[in-house]
Design a protein around this nucleic acid. Structure first.
Lengths: 152, 152
DNA sequence: GTGATTTTTTGACTTAAGTCAATTTTTAAG
DNA sequence: CTTAAAAATTGACTTAAGTCAAAAAATCAC
């Protein structure tokens, strides 16, 4: 486990190797929020940015190696290199776009379309993620996902 | 119409009075993305931040008055007052949280729960929005929403 | 105000996906 | 390797919500 939800997220990780998952607990079940593979950043966004607890856990699904950037060091960069703050702001703009697309993808699609969309969005790693975790990510029952996979 | 999707969003509006809706077109139908009332900011986030076209339209649902902030003027503020860039970055952090919650709310709830959640989140304006627009916002059929409203 | 158009409501029917339970397969532990 | 535990699959059944069509209500244009 990389991050427990009862802790403030003070590190942002850049994955060198392996696979991580962010999730939270709802009605006693783990609900996947997103997955991260090689060359991607992972943290608990609201916790990291606002330095307060949030509901998200981060776990390694595979043996993983990652660089770690402490929030204080990042703030140092922001303080001393204004371009960093601008870069961060622009990156968030594109991240918004992805989230808005995800919202759309969730709202108006069948379970099969959700899974297809997932396989595209996570084309490099989707086959390494256990079925149950994918199902909770998509908000569908694991049985349903199993049936979708069967018919292809 | 405040913003057409074939145009880059160069203004961010702060609503003085009235009601606006952001939406996009999918399969020939208007799908509501969000609603904004008094004392709220509205723009097309990715378009505004990255100065490129996006899919969102913005319309007034009621006769509306709003202040307008041009993106160039905002950049002037960013350039001359570093605190502004930081403020913007932190605000986005909290906005992320709201979007993540909305994703959760969409993934694991019945149509009725979605509507209840909507009425809470938009408690100040929900009663002024036509049924069809609410239905497309929630990703449910207008007939379903009509039936949900009936049984309360 | 009157007629036309759009929106909402209602009913009947269909379907996608959930639930529950049992079985099989996979993974982990000793 | 063997056993135990967890995860995935399969089948039978249920249900929430979608679709289609028609009627009623609300809105708009003249």
């Amino acid at each position: 486990m990389i991050l427990n939800a009862d802790t403030v997220c003070t590190e942002s990780y850049f994955i060198r190797k392996g696979l991580l998952r962010t999730y939270f607990i709802k009605d006693g079940k783990e609900i996947s929020e997103y997955f991260c593979g090689i060359d991607e950043w992972v943290n608990s966004p609201r916790s990291f940015i606002q330095r307060k607890k949030d509901i998200y856990f981060i776990d390694a699904i595979e043996k993983t190696e990652a660089y770690s950037l402490n929030v204080n060091d990042l703030v140092y960069l922001f303080d001393n290199f204004p371009i960093m703050e601008r870069y961060s702001r622009l990156s968030m703009g594109s991240f918004f776009g992805h989230m808005m697309e995800r919202i759309t993808s969730i709202r108006f699609t069948t379970a099969k379309e959700k899974y297809d969309h997932f396989c595209q969005a996570y084309s490099h790693i989707y086959h390494r993620i256990p079925l149950g975790m994918v199902a909770s990510y998509l908000g569908i029952a694991p049985e349903t996902l199993s049936r979708i996979r069967k018919q292809r």
